[in-house]
């Protein structure tokens, strides 16, 4: 993963020099540890700021909607799946993009690091291990123990579309049950399910960071901001909070790529992936659909097939 950055810089400089693109979107070091931030490079000098390590969890596909320029973008497996979704939904043209694909080895979960250590000053991704440096300590941990939960169960780490890859594709694990969490909830009683979500959402402050970080949430006016009609109450009432989260998840049905941007952005650490994952699983079970794998097939929720499942209609 460390070796990727030289290649990313080299490709970015080349495409800027050749005027193939007007800008390249990548990552630069953030102001706090483990928080790399998006960086738009318009000159070759800007490209020198680029970094790549296990702190690049933000989904850069979020910055493409409606752009008119030609854009180079550094994209992980999940990012490319969101780019595919954007292309399908006419948010950007494939011809406008130069995709620098990064075979992804997983992103580090900053919450796990902060839970285990106090006063973390720097976290260095060394490939298989992670070095955590604080004021008076230095620790080395296996990266597999610190991965974001969606990265630990990722089945598409390699870019699905790209103009250039910065390294060899990584091995795709085959023995992973990516929906183990959903199955656990499905097995609960009705009572327990209700309680589970009550408990999950009790910390929510409705800041909408999950929505803003999500590349799928690009509506000019979100349903929660509408006032005529008002689809959902704007209060902190648990029912309003629940309605917001469930409706948002439904808007992502058949589109969500489980990139984890929502969970990553949440200031209170709610795992809202349990909503989107359920819909992802349903889409897979009902339609054999995984979002963002190809631009050639329309998603199940905007097509009609005579054999669409309809057992729920009596």
């Amino acid at each position: 993963m460390i070796g990727y950055i030289d290649k990313i810089k080299q490709i970015s400089k080349q495409i800027l020099e050749d005027c193939k693109v007007d800008m390249v979107i990548g990552f630069r070091r953030g102001t706090v540890p483990m928080m790399n931030e998006p960086c738009v490079a318009k000159t070759e000098d800007d490209v020198d700021q680029f970094v790549w390590d296990g702190h690049c969890g933000i989904n850069l596909a979020n910055y493409l909607m409606g752009r008119k320029e030609k854009i180079g973008i550094v994209a992980k497996g999940c990012d490319t799946r969101n780019i595919v979704t954007h292309i399908i939904e006419n948010k950007i043209d494939r011809d406008q993009l130069y995709i620098i694909g990064v075979p992804c080895k997983g992103m580090i979960d900053r919450r796990q690091v902060n839970n285990r250590f106090e006063g973390v000053r720097e976290v260095i991704d060394q490939g298989d291990t992670v070095k955590i440096i604080g004021a008076d300590f230095e620790e080395k941990l296996d990266k597999t123990d610190l991965l974001q939960s969606n990265c630990a169960t990722c089945t598409h780490p390699n870019p699905v579309i790209h103009d250039e890859l910065v390294g060899d594709p990584v091995e795709v694990p085959t023995d992973i049950d990516q929906w183990a969490d959903v199955r656990k909830i499905e097995a609960m009683s009705t009572e327990d399910k209700w309680g589970y979500f009550d408990d999950l959402l009790k910390e929510c402050i409705r800041c909408y960071a999950c929505r803003n970080a999500c590349p799928l949430c690009y509506c000019p006016t979100c349903f929660v901001d509408e006032s005529t009609p008002q689809w959902v109450g704007k209060s902190q009432d648990p029912i309003d909070v629940r309605t917001f989260h469930f409706l948002r998840a439904f808007h992502c049905a058949g589109r969500c790529t489980d990139c984890g941007a929502c969970e990553r952005a949440c200031p209170v650490g709610i795992n809202m992936r349990v909503f989107t994952q359920k819909l992802e699983k349903d889409c897979y079970d009902l339609y054999g659909w995984e979002a963002g794998l190809t631009t050639d097939v329309r998603p199940p929720l905007d097509t009609y097939r005579a054999d669409d499942p309809e057992e729920f209609i009596k």
Binding site: I185, E186, T190, E191, D192, K193, G195, Y196, F197, F246
Partner: peptide, 9 residues
């Protein structure tokens, strides 16, 4: 709805 804990009936 049933997944969130509303009775499926």
């Amino acid at each position: 709805m049933a997944h969130m804990g509303v009775e499926s009936e």
